[in-house]
Write a protein that binds this DNA or RNA. Structure first.
Lengths: 236, 236
DNA sequence: TATACTGAAATTGGATGCAATATACCATCG
DNA sequence: CGATGGTATATTGCATCCAATTTCAGTATA
């Protein structure tokens, strides 16, 4: 709205986001500039801009002289994302419960229908994408661009975190929680909707193992009483 | 944290943000790439990246082929920013009320002292900057990077909005509200802190005139029944 | 006098090229 | 056989360059 993008730039970012939502771009995946440039038939300049912007909101990580990779959020960061979501999303559904018109309600119902269809047909990638986009849809309905951008970012990052830290096989989002939330919103019961959303986010977090791993390889060496043997030899 | 910036890029963005906080860069100001490049003694490439990133989070507006200007949020957008702040900032102080250590408390007290000093000495630009940075400090104390980024953006945009829509001469933030909030946080009274923050944000909004202007020049032409006379003459 | 044209200057968008750095591979040595 | 060092390749970061577009000044015209 405020900015006029190069069309190609926006397209690249959208495709990368979609790929993340559908779990075809795993966290940590290298995003080589030239390779992307080929794939999208644009110059590296455009790709660079797209990557800078994705990096700006944390979707890709850029390390100097190492280029860009799909972000691999740490456990600590994941807890941060979810903390923010717990602040914002209950407030979103509270707001929606008081202002939803018929058309908005339809969009929500349609979305739930699409989720169920994907679940029944066993189309896993679509289901995962849709369950994620549910949260985006709620943000969109507030007509608040800041919220849309924020949730887009947080949803993508949560999606990546789930890939990294999910306990065993888990169903993207528990089946009927979305529909319960929608019901509360449409019924105008803001408090109830907020409570359900909070519980929902708790479930999302509970399905991940976010406890800090006790030891790292560094600690291992220490624990064994062995000093790392990589002694820096005289260099000059 | 996740990204390793070009030092110059980060410096440019920081300087621009500071200038906005201190109200030396008014909304709508043109940011010419080459001019910035000279000022910072870097190439346009670096400036471009900095501007893209600032545009990404709404601080500057980029219109295709028109370059970048400091953002001039509309009234509607301003209401959106404040809506998000009302969702997030009470939650922030609630969280802080339960986890603040002695060092954090000192930082808050020091900040209040600095604000008061600036107020007494009549150093207006510093006062304005500090009252804005108070909200950033709260975000920092949560040690949640997403919140820091979000608040940085929203604070800058609120600052710009105040310049555009303030009713008469107003004191950046009402004098003692910050100290009341800090007192509640340190006392561990989360509910109270949240309520005070909410009231504080209401005051910020109340000091602006955010009602939509009834008519625009566009409507004027229409209202008078005059078609814009710039009829495109045959071109080829 | 005010408005519409015209050409020049300024500015941006994007591509390309080069230097710096990291990665990968391979030979050498213990 | 594994580790180490060195070279070649690949990739990134950045500056510069060119085309496209806009803006501005000046001129002509009604």
């Amino acid at each position: 709205m405020l900015t006029t993008d190069s069309a190609a730039d926006a397209a690249i970012r959208h495709r990368i986001l979609q790929a993340i939502f559908e779990r075809r771009l795993p966290p940590g995946e290298k995003l080589t500039e030239e390779r992307l440039a080929e794939l999208f038939s644009v110059s590296r300049t455009i790709v660079r801009h797209a990557l800078v912007r994705l990096a700006q909101d944390g979707i890709v990580a850029q390390r100097r002289n190492h280029g860009a990779t799909v972000a691999a959020p740490t456990r600590s960061e994941t807890r941060q994302f979810l903390a923010v979501r717990r602040m914002v999303e209950p407030a979103i559904v509270t707001q929606l419960a008081g202002m939803l018109n018929a058309q908005d309600a339809s969009r929500l119902r349609d979305h739930l229908a699409a989720e169920n269809a994907a679940r029944k047909s066993g189309d896993r990638p679509t289901l995962v994408r849709l369950t994620g986009e549910f949260h985006l849809l709620l943000a969109e309905l507030t007509q608040n661009n800041v919220l849309v951008r924020l949730l887009t970012e947080l949803q993508a990052l949560t999606c990546l975190a789930i890939l990294l830290y999910a306990r065993g096989e888990h169903e993207a989002c528990p089946p009927d929680e979305h529909s319960q939330i929608v019901a509360a919103i449409i019924a105008g019961e803001g408090k109830q909707a907020a409570a359900l959303m909070l519980k929902h986010l708790d479930h999302v977090e509970a399905e991940m193992d976010l406890s800090e791993p006790a030891a790292r390889s560094v600690d291992l060496a220490e624990a064994l009483g062995i000093r790392p043997r990589k002694i820096r030899t005289a260099k000059g």
